[in-house]
Simulated scan of single mutants.
Amino acid sequence: MSRPQEPHRPFFPFGNPFRMMSPKGSQLSQALLELLNSFEETLAERLRKLETVGDVLSLAWMKSAMESLCETHKEIKTLIARLELPVSDWDEKWIDVYLDISIKLLDISNAFSSELSRMNQGHLLLQCALHNLEANSPQQFVRARSSLDGWRRQIRTKNPRLQKCCSFLDGLMETLNLPKVKNSAKGKVLMRAMYGVKVQTLFICSVFVAAFSGSSKKLFESDVADTYLWAQDFKHLRGNVNLKIRKKLSSQSGHLVKELEGVDTAVEKLYPLTQNDFISLEEESLRSSVKQLGIEADKLSGGLNLLVKEVDGFFQIVLTGRDALLSSLRATCTGTDPTVGKRVGQSVV
């Protein structure tokens, strides 16, 4: 990540994250150590599982990656509950970090949803084209040609909201270093676990940005210390995924998402056949091309529907977590019923 030439104060200057388990200050009890190890081992298992899902950058893999991320964010909420660390005991810097991260994640989720919506709109154009071609009439043939033209224009148009994701990812990178924890064993566990959550989040979001934008500029490359139980599994997964992305980008100029590439290949085969006078569907070349496009369009639609649900689920997890924190802060500051604070928290979001 590029840096300005002049020195500047980091967004959250919390120092070296690897000092958090220093022998100075509070030591971890056996119970806390087991709690932390369980969290890290579960994260390592999730990362290993992603290596067995299938083709990287297929919608099926992306769906599994987002599902894995949702599970980790749920797990950190469970961990906080089991730590029994009230919000009133949280360091103010922890709260600042959490709120800053959550708003960036909501923005990133919205950008992903926007791109998936664009793909779904393109799929509607494909459905129109197929429907008109199957009507097997000169008038409908012209309409099918128009729909295919619309697909080709839309799929080659850049989504401006994806461009903003780059700055959001830069902002998340600024929060990767953890706050210093003084004399708080529970705080050390929380910060170490949060680091794992942020690393997985940055990695998966960077892969999504690469898949949607066709650029590897924001792929996550930061080093991770081997002191984490999930470090080796993460490095192995990241190395394989990033290598495949770069290899695919260097070998072709097409789409990174497998199902999108399949549809585009079928469209480019069918499109020239529609540029001349009416061709009956009885012609083998047209019938074969229409059939192949239908198959690829169904794969795209099915994959998009599943991925949309996972992205929406991730948005809700982040939103409810942010809302719960704001609600607790409101209740702590005013001494009012948490329900009142929740309404205030929702207003802030």
Rank of each mutant, 00 (worst) to 15 (best):
F208N: 01
L286S: 06
W90V: 02
T274W: 09
N16C: 05
V189R: 04
Q275G: 07
H73S: 06
G294R: 04
H255G: 08
A65Q: 05
V199W: 09
S328N: 11
F208L: 04
D223H: 11
F314Q: 05
V348T: 06
F315S: 07
R145T: 06
P17K: 07
L178P: 02
K217P: 08
W151V: 05
T336F: 12
Y228D: 12
A81M: 11
E134C: 11
V308R: 07
L43E: 13
V97E: 15
T339Q: 10
D96G: 13
A297C: 06
L286K: 03
A225E: 14
G171A: 03
E261Y: 12
W90P: 00
F39Y: 14
L229Y: 11
E284Y: 05
S147N: 08
T274V: 14
V318H: 02
G214D: 01
M173C: 13
N110A: 00
S301T: 01
K299L: 12
T175D: 07
C128S: 15
K248A: 01
Q127M: 13
Q154N: 14
K269A: 03
E34T: 08
M173R: 14
E221H: 06
S146P: 02
R145G: 13
A129S: 14
F212R: 04
C165K: 03
V308N: 00
V257S: 01
P13T: 05
F18K: 11
L43S: 11
L249A: 03
D149K: 09
L85H: 10
L219M: 07
K291L: 08
S88T: 13
L304T: 01
T332R: 07
K217V: 12
A111M: 01
M194C: 10
V267D: 02
L178E: 09
N159A: 01
K244T: 10
E34S: 12
K158Y: 06
L172V: 01
C333N: 15
V142H: 12
V197S: 06
P272E: 09
N242G: 00
F203R: 00
G345R: 07
Q346I: 09
P138S: 09
S215G: 00
G54I: 05
K74Q: 15
G15F: 08
V224D: 05
R156P: 06
F203K: 04
E261L: 10
T201V: 08
L162I: 03
A144W: 06
G345T: 05
R330K: 14
L286G: 02
Q154Y: 09
K24R: 15
K342F: 03
D170G: 06
G150Y: 11
I80K: 12
L176T: 03
V349S: 11
V189F: 04
H131P: 04
E310L: 05
D323N: 14
S289W: 01
L126E: 05
R287M: 12
C70F: 01
G313F: 03
R152Y: 00
R118C: 05
